[in-house]
Design a protein around this nucleic acid. Structure first.
Lengths: 195, 195
DNA sequence: GTCTATAAAGCGATAGAC
DNA sequence: GTCTATCGCTTTATAGAC
């Protein structure tokens, strides 16, 4: 293997770990399997990471960043309305490839049981609620902005995203259609009003 | 350890495995940890199970049965209306203790990657949709029975259950309130009409 | 059906040459 | 920064006495 800067090598190992986990789970993700997937020697992994746990912690953060970016990069014109915005987010969310979703759920469960990453993952959810809420509020019409509770709306959107993702992972791509997902959220918008 | 019939020992190991997985995940669930949790010698585990995989397969089925029973044992008077029925199911679902939910998600992800159990888990979701649908239809008023699409409704209910469970696991018990969950499903009922 | 002891394989991590 | 080779430990699984 050619020489590669340590910074870049780290990224290669993290992405390799994600692919291995998507296939075999965290329980099957050995350092040997990850190194092979990255096309590097086992010793190279320990050259750039102090331990296997360090690598997984970086994967947790990489996965969290990925999620944040999926949302941040969603194009949402201001004033286009909450329904349109939610539709865009939902479909963007669903377009993430199955293997990646698989590893995301697995590594998230792992992080919840790891002292070093537990709090970060809890914070990830809080930040996601905030981010979704801001996005929806930004896209809302003036009338919607006055009446809707955007934090409630954000939680509802995430609940639907998670439920759809997990169900689709288990039951297959025909579990629920795009139109049905959008329809579900449309129904849920109307009652998320300020109290 | 006293002599215990093999049939009963199997159950003890399966339940011990569930507890260990809820704490450490599938990746941390070693045969030694499971045997210790069950209060038995490691050799006893291999006396009643051919392999560790066999034990996990039985755990997958045990978890699936548990889910089916949670639903089956939910008391739902006929004609009480879909909203009441859904409310009862949602709250029943949420009452499952956190450690059990934790291990259920973990073992379900594991089963999806295991050739022997993959198809069973896909079938579990199909059966759940059917079971939820029947339950809701049974509880429906005559008017609802004519207008509502119970399969669509069942999928929506499961999406919300999964999303709420996973989010609560990650973000904590304050992620979403019971009232909000019920309100969400109420909103979603109205638009799940026959096409 | 229980146990202790151990085999055989795989694991994370390191040494040391290049 | 890369590699091969190997250490020390843990893992699953088995042998054999009780």
């Amino acid at each position: 293997m050619a020489h590669v800067p340590a910074q870049e090598r780290r990224k290669q190992f993290v992405e390799a770990a994600s692919r291995v986990i998507s296939e075999k789970g965290v329980s099957g993700a050995t350092t040997r399997a990850i190194a092979q997937e990255a096309g590097a020697a086992l010793a190279s992994l320990h050259y750039v990471f102090n331990s296997k746990e360090d690598l997984l912690v970086e994967l947790v953060r990489w996965a969290a960043d990925f999620n944040q970016n999926v949302i941040a990069e969603t194009p949402l014109p201001a004033g286009s309305g909450v329904a349109t915005a939610a539709r865009t987010i939902l479909l963007m969310w669903r377009s993430v490839e199955r293997p990646l979703v698989f590893s995301q759920f697995d590594i998230l469960l792992w992080s919840m049981r790891t002292e070093l990453t537990k709090n970060e993952s809890v914070l990830l959810y809080e930040r996601m609620v905030e981010q979704f809420g801001n996005l929806l509020e930004h896209a809302a019409t003036p009338k919607e902005r006055k009446s809707l509770d955007f934090k409630r709306l954000a939680v509802r959107l995430i609940v639907i995203c998670d439920g759809v993702q997990f169900g689709t992972l288990c039951a297959g791509p025909d579990y629920i259609s795009d139109a049905e997902v959008v329809d579900m959220f449309d129904s849920v918008i109307k009652t998320a009003v300020k109290t």
